[in-house]
Amino acid sequence: MSVIAWTLILASFIISFAGLLYPVIPASLFVFLGFIIYGLFFTFGDLPWWFWAAEVLFLILLFGADFLANAVGVKRFGGSKAGMWGSTVGLIVGPFVIPVAGILAGPFIGAVAAELIFNRMPPGRALKSGIGSLVGFLTSVAAKASIQLVMIILFLIVIP
């Protein structure tokens, strides 16, 4: 039974990292799913209250890192709120429209299109905003991967 439990836990952690590249997969929830599976198969008693408090703080940090990296990336490269929203829409739609490459092309195209349509930016400046969305996305993926890794390491340290 423990082999099944650890297989499910490991699978949920792996899916959480896949969620970094495919935003339709709620990455952070899969990390928590691994913790819940552990508690259901073994015992929640191994996971003290401070562990849950720390993990919730990391979860808040994950959401903040995602939003902040995208916002800073677009803003730093001269983009606007429209560019940020376009980037977000492109991030969600891109992988479905352009498999594999859509994860990078989607935010770029979304930011550029939003800047051109809603702000009537010159094409050069809109392209710069698109590059900012890519930088923001890649920064966000790196930050979230690091945070998720810390969450999982904390889990592995806490369990007996």
Rank of each mutant, 00 (worst) to 15 (best):
D66Q: 15
I9R: 00
S16R: 03
R120S: 11
F137E: 03
T88A: 15
I103E: 07
I14P: 01
A142L: 08
P160Y: 06
P95A: 12
F13R: 03
A11F: 03
V93W: 09
L20C: 06
L20I: 07
I152H: 02
L33H: 05
P26M: 10
A11T: 13
P107G: 10
G132W: 00
L154M: 13
M151F: 02
V31G: 01
A113T: 14
M151N: 04
G124E: 10
M1S: 11
L154N: 12
I159A: 12
V150G: 07
I37W: 11
F118R: 03
I9D: 05
A114R: 00
I4K: 09
V56N: 14
W49N: 07
K75L: 04
Q148E: 13
I131A: 14
S140N: 06
S129M: 00
V93P: 04
A18Q: 10
G34N: 07
L68G: 06
W50V: 13
F44M: 07
L134W: 09
A145N: 12
L154V: 05
S80P: 05
W85F: 13
I4N: 08
G64D: 10
G39L: 04
I98T: 09
I152M: 14
V135S: 03
W6M: 09
I152V: 09
L149H: 05
Y38R: 11
A114C: 04
W85Q: 10
L57A: 15
L156M: 15
S2Q: 15
A101L: 13
I15R: 11
P23R: 10
A82C: 04
A145G: 13
W52L: 14
F63K: 09
I14N: 02
N119C: 14
V31D: 02
F17E: 08
S140A: 10
M84R: 12
G90M: 12
P99L: 06
K75C: 05
G124V: 01
L47F: 12
